[in-house]
Nucleic acid binder design. Sequence first.
RNA 1: GCCAGGGUGGCGAAAUUGGCAGACGCGCCAGACUUAGGAUCUGGUUCCGCAAGGAUUAGGGGUUCGAGUCCCCUCCCUGGUACCA
Length: 858
Amino acid sequence: MSERRKPYPFDQIEPKWQSLWEESRAFHAPNPGEAGFDSTKPKFYILDMFPYPSGAGLHVGHPEGYTATDIVARYKRASGFNVLHPMGWDAFGLPAEQYAIKTGQHPEITTRANIAKFRMQLKRIGFSYDWEREVSTADPRFFRWTQWIFLQIYNSWFNSETQRAEPISTYRGDDPDSVRLAYVASVAVNWCPELGTVLANEEVIDGKSEVGGFSVVRRPMRQWMLRITAFAERLMDELEPLDWPVGIKLLQRNWIGKSEGAEVQFTVADAGKELEPAESGVGITVFTTRPDTLYGATYMVLAPENPLVDSIAVSEQKSAVQEYREQVAAKSDLERTDLAKEKSGVFTGSYAINPVNGERVPIWIADYVLMGYGTGAIMAVPAHDARDLEFAQRYDLPVRAVVQAPTGAENVGYVGEGAAINSPLLEGLPTVDAKEKIIRWLEERGHGRRTINYKLRDWLFSRQRYWGEPFPIVWREGKHEALAESELPLEPPPLEDFKPTGTGEPPLARAKEWLRYSEAATRETNTMPQWAGSCWYYLRFCDPANDSRFVGEGAERYWMGGDQPAGVDLYVGGTEHAVLHLLYARFWHKVLFDLGHLSKAEPFQRLVNQGMILGEDGRKMSKRWGNVIDPLDVIADYGADAFRCYEMFMGPLEQMKPWSMKGVEGVSRFLARVWRLVLEENQAGDWVRSGLVQEIPPNKRQLKMVHATIKKVSEDIEALSFNTAISQMMVFVNEFTNAPARPVSALRTLLVLLNPFAPHLASELWQRLAQEFPDGESAIEKVPWPQYDPAYLIEDEVEIIIQVNGKLRDRIVVRLNAAEEEMKAAALASAKVQEFVAGKTVRKVVIIPNRLVNIVAN
RNA sequence: GCCAGGGUGGCGAAAUUGGCAGACGCGCCAGACUUAGGAUCUGGUUCCGCAAGGAUUAGGGGUUCGAGUCCCCUCCCUGGUACCA
């Protein structure tokens, strides 16, 4: 490959332009108030999901989104916008720590080296980032403000009346610690013994850790939680006006999982004379989305972990109940959620009273009822719930249909809506009305109330790791308190041994000196999860060097302001962050907004997910298959411009698509054709101006091509349809390659259009043309984006198609805007048409001006 | 199971409001220039057919003068999710 003769000297021009851009600060975006800031221009904030700088370096997947945003950034700059287009590093994270455990190398060293490698690779692709805004989440100047934001959250509560976060000082209750947005709770967490840490639900996949695939067990531990559930409603509602893919919006909505329904209170009946009664009068509250089926509730089920079980189980059943609870506790999450398994449960021996009809219904425990959702208890309506039915059949419990199924369907097993039956209070009412009526009935009697439930849980925010942000919290006499802002940043202590302690005690506990805050107080030893930095990095980019505020007010107002509901105009990244990162970041953003620190309640206006790039064999790229493509290898052989253009030419940005080296070659040929459109090789082997390039006006056909290309490329960039934009430029180049002469003006226009895609090539050719044919502007990135003139796209004549019975039979040329009668006459005169209508009667003639004539005959 | 997105040549893919299916690129075939071609240029290339012509956008049905595009059913693929009451 190294022997390959280069189709054009990209290996010389690419480094040349990269260093010129760097020296001239070509892509630096000044902030309002700074030298060079042009306040007459509108802003455009284009954000990439910043990478975790892994040791493996850049993968071809990264530059796919980055190239797309780079094209938009260069296009927007040329179109008269102040463009914020930054890059940084999501630098805290498990791999560096794991590496440290293995080698003893401090994560900071590993991270710094990896960042240097990533930065070099990105620069080698020629991205137009404003490198003066580079940030790293592991930099104390950055995480100082991550800690500061944590304190904002810690010092806030959610006022349900205003539906906003407010400073804790406005809280009037007795115990502020019970309402803080950051709080400590003992919760059953996902403990991963192998990693020696707890994981968020989102980091556990099928009972295994997302990182490493180690098994995970449930275990109660004291953890920091963030009260994201308080924002559930707003996280759903405020998603609405955003320009996100519908699929991602849906994913977030499903994750939040809003269910409207009612809580219904059942009382535990006297458990029976001969048994030691459960404490009479104990209430069991259930959540249901179908209160209209209350008459069909023939038994109840509690989650095995439900604390009420102790007081409800009668003595004769206690041992069976206890045994079942132990069985369940021993099961891993994976086993428990295994759908293939049969439902199981145990009778508690007690009965509850159904408030609507006074009926005694048995109370069971079963692991298909989860403690973590609703109230940890259900009323079972086996006739209209598949799970309850399965359970009822297994244990021979009564089934009573209370909803009329549509004709043809059995009532039992029907889970849809329909008229209520066997329900005295609700008889005949459709589901919607029946729900309303029964809820009112329950509320009037104090047996229940209307309520809403969410699947979303509070966010488990602490980790037992070394390589993360320490909490700015100290413990004094068993109570937590905030560090003063002046004590930030709180840096992690130097450690030799990064290993998890294995007890759940974080590695920071090893740093005895650091741990001791004062005589009476010790530091919190947990660290924050990797999500913390990425929750707000896009804000820091607005003002990355500010040491007195997390982001300057003016900078925030400018870059995160504007007319739209959210500040970042375009955000491109992988679907893997569809729920977690995007939900967490929106949550933090709302807290900061509510506290008056931000301009908008939402961060990201337009979101686009790039599709995954597969190996040449159509499989996911991985070392295992040996199909991994290294961007630097491709660049060495074909150049950065070919790499960029190929990534965009492969297919639609959002689609999954396989890599093809042949495809790279094809795009590389296209760029070489552009090169040779302007230059030719002389006897000495030097590239000199092609003799065909002349200062002449383009002919009519060429003008049409120029303007059609401006239109197509501009519109396609706006729509992120880069593959078709490139294809239009290919058509342009094919056309001009064959022309006897090449007007300079047309070539210049092409170069400006091509510049966002292949900036090194376009810059070089632009400069050479400027030397041959001097004009006012010497740097292509300063040239305004061309506008097309529709007048050049219109022809005097148009070719229309002639169909007979919908089939194409002929095409003829008519004047533009020819009258219908004229088109009809011309069509009927066609010999081909006559041949096909011979012996038939023309029934109808459909005429679409400037397009077609369809003759219907039989 | 449920939700979402897909299914168009040998391959990656195009196709405004329903209006020439297959732009552009890869691959392949032929030719030109060349000592040479793995460089470059030109032409061809959905399938069947010598041709006229016919068929064709996963499969089936429908609406329409006209459907890749709209409606209904079925099949297949990808992603998400998984007892959420």
